[in-house]
Computed example of a mutant assay.
Amino acid sequence: MTILVTGASGHLGHLVVDALLERSAPASDIVAGGRSVDKLADLAERGVRTVALDYNDPETIAAALDGVDSVLLISASEPGKRYAGHKNVIDAAAAAGVSKFVYTSVSKATTFDWPLGAEHKATEEAIAESGLPAVILRNDWYIENYTADVQRAEQSGVITSSVGDARVAAAARKDYADAAAVVLLGDGHIGEVYELGGDVAVSYDDIAAAAGEVLGREVSYVRISRDDLLAGLAGAGLDAGTAEFVASMDDGIRGGVLADTDGTLARLIGRPTTPFVDGLRTALGR
Score class of each variant (00 low, 15 high):
Asp29Tyr: 06
Val31Arg: 14
Ala32Gln: 10
Gly33Cys: 05
Gly33Ser: 11
Gly33Thr: 05
Gly34His: 02
Gly34Pro: 05
Arg35Glu: 06
Ser36Ile: 03
Ser36Glu: 14
Val37Lys: 12
Val37Trp: 01
Val37Phe: 00
Val37Asp: 02
Asp38Val: 09
Asp38Pro: 04
Lys39Asp: 04
Lys39Val: 01
Lys39Gly: 06
Leu40Met: 05
Leu40Phe: 10
Leu40Thr: 07
Ala41Tyr: 09
Asp42His: 15
Asp42Lys: 11
Leu43Pro: 04
Leu43Gly: 06
Leu43Val: 07
Leu43Phe: 01
Ala44Gly: 14
Ala44Gln: 14
Ala44Pro: 03
Ala44Cys: 03
Ala44Met: 08
Ala44Lys: 15
Ala44Tyr: 05
Glu45Asp: 15
Glu45His: 13
Glu45Phe: 06
Arg46Thr: 12
Arg46Val: 09
Arg46Asp: 13
Gly47Pro: 09
Gly47Leu: 03
Gly47Glu: 07
Gly47Ile: 02
Val48Lys: 01
Val48Thr: 02
Val48Ala: 02
Val48Cys: 01
Val48Leu: 04
Arg49His: 12
Arg49Pro: 00
Arg49Gly: 00
Arg49Phe: 00
Thr50Ile: 14
Thr50Glu: 03
Thr50Cys: 12
Val51Arg: 13
Ala52Trp: 01
Ala52Met: 09
Leu53Ala: 11
Asp54Ala: 06
Tyr55Arg: 12
Asn56Gln: 13
Asn56Lys: 10
Asn56Arg: 13
Asp57Lys: 10
Asp57Trp: 08
Asp57Asn: 14
Asp57Val: 13
Pro58Tyr: 08
Pro58Glu: 11
Pro58Trp: 10
Glu59His: 11
Glu59Asp: 15
Glu59Trp: 00
Glu59Phe: 03
Glu59Tyr: 03
Glu59Gln: 13
Thr60Asp: 01
Thr60Lys: 03
Thr60Asn: 05
Ile61Trp: 09
Ile61Asn: 09
Ala62Pro: 00
Ala63Pro: 00
Ala64Lys: 11
Ala64Tyr: 08
Ala64Asn: 10
Ala64Val: 10
Ala64Ile: 08
Ala64Pro: 07
Leu65Asn: 05
Leu65Tyr: 00
Leu65Ala: 05
Asp66Met: 07
